[in-house]
């Protein structure tokens, strides 16, 4: 568990350093995610026992953290409610854009991908 957490923190730290160094818009943790993913893919065929053990550790820690992902959004979510007055007189218009825009985007995106998956699968056969 501890070793797994250490590796995850290490990748985040690496991501933060890269982000600061190159002044990127993409946040450190997302860069860390991408590097960890490529590291795992790169190590896919490595059968060394030590590495396999660390990998297992990282995986069980990751599963534990991500299963509480929802909880982690509560502190900043509270910030939205407490600062909603920043939107002043535009509150209803902004909410309108967010609700309508989000519903349309999620629906159309999902429909498109479902169609593409079916179409490309049929084409392969």
């Amino acid at each position: 568990m501890l070793r797994g957490f250490f590796v995850i923190l290490l990748f985040q730290l690496f991501g933060e350093v890269i982000q600061k160094f190159f002044a990127l818009v993409i946040p450190g943790p997302v860069i860390g995610l991408i590097f960890l993913l490529f590291t795992l893919i790169y190590l896919r065929r490595v059968k060394m026992k030590k590495i396999l053990n660390v990998k297992k550790d990282v995986m069980s820690t990751a599963t534990a953290i991500t299963s509480y992902l929802s909880l982690l959004f509560v502190p900043i979510g509270v910030g939205v409610v407490m600062h909603i007055s920043y939107l002043e007189k535009n509150l209803y218009q902004v909410l309108g854009v967010v609700v309508i825009g989000t519903m349309l985007t999620v629906g159309i995106t999902a429909k498109l991908m479902e169609y593409l998956n079916l179409y490309l699968q049929r084409k392969k056969k």
Partner: peptide, 13 residues
């Protein structure tokens, strides 16, 4: 913990 949790999403992917 949001930071480490984001990095950890590499595993399910």
């Amino acid at each position: 913990l949001l930071g480490p949790a984001t990095v950890a999403l590499a595993i399910p992917i």
